[in-house]
Amino acid sequence: MSGGRSAEGPVWSLHVGVVAGLLLLNFVLPDYHHGVFARILVLAVFAMGYNLLFGYVGLLSLGHAMFFAAGLYGAGLPMVHLGWGVPAAFSTGIVCGLVLALAVGLLALRTSGVAFMIVTMMFAQALALAVLYFGQWTRGDEGLVIAQAQRSLDLGPWRLDFTDPATRYLTALALFAIVLSATLAIVRSRFGRVLVAIRENEERTRMLGYDTFRNKLSAVVISGTICAAAGATYAILFGYVGSSFAGIQYSILPLLWVLLGGSATTLGPLIGTLLMYYLVDGSNDVLKAWLPDWRFSHLGVVGLALILLVLFFPRGLLGTLRQRWAGWLP
C-alpha cells in the first residue's frame, strides 16, 4: 500500500476533478463522441467492479460477463415482458447480480488459482447457454429492444427521459461517480486493506486472525453487484438486451480494460476502457482504409493488445505512473 494520511488532499481533488471534467465534457463533446462517452462510462463501471476483485483481491475471474448479464437481463426482461418501470427493473437487475454473485462466490471460492478461473468461466458459459436456451423470452443473439416510452422516470414534477442524449450521459456519469467514490472508500477502508493483504499473502492474513473466506466472499458480492448495476443501467440507457453481453468476450474485455489502465488503481478502469474503446474503433477504420481486403477485425487488435500488455506492460498505465512518479495514487 502506497500513500498515507498525508496524501488525503490530492487524492480527493484528483477524483473530484475527474468527475468534474467528465461533467464539463457533457457540454462540449460533439454528438458522436458524446454517445460513445456515455457508453464508456457505463462500461467503465463494469471494469471498476471487475478491478475490485482482480486488482485488489488478486482473484482473476474469467466469467464476469455473467454478473453484467444478470443485471442486463434482470432489468431488461421484466421491462419487456411485464411492462415494469425503471426503478423496479433497476432494483431487480441489481438483486439478480447480488444473488448470483453470492451463489457463485460460495461455490467458486472453494477453489483458487487456475481452478477459480475455469470455474467462473464455466458458470458464465452455463448462463450464456441458458440465455440461448430460453430463446422464446430472451430472443437469443437477436436480443430484445426495450420500448422508448418505458425508458423514462417521473420524479415529482420532472420527467427523466433516458433516450435523451444529455440525460443519458448525466445518468451514466452519476452511476460512475457513485461507484468511483464507493470504490475509493472501500479500498481506503480497513476492509480494503484486508483485501490487499489477502492478495499479497493469504496464508499470513489468515494467521493474523482475519476470516479470509468471508472477506473474499464480500469482495465477490460487491464486485458482482457493481457489474450488475452497470448491466442494468446499460439496458435502461441503451434499450438493448442481447446474448452477446453474456458471452465469453464480455468476460475478457473487462480484464483487458483493467490491465491496460492499471489494475488496483481506482481510475485505471476508466482510462483502460476509454483507450481500448477508441483503439478498437480507430483500428477498424484504419484497417478498412489501409487493408481493405483483409477481414482482420477488432478482435485481432484485442488479442494483440492482451499479449503485448502482459508481456511488456503488466502494471498498466496508472500502475506504471504510480510506481515511477506518483506513489500516492490510490
Binding site: R295, F296, L299, G300, G303, L304, A305, L306, I307
Partner: peptide
Amino acid sequence: IGLLYLLQQ
C-alpha cells in the same frame, strides 16, 4: 486468450 483471438482473426 490473446493468442486465441490473434490466430482466429
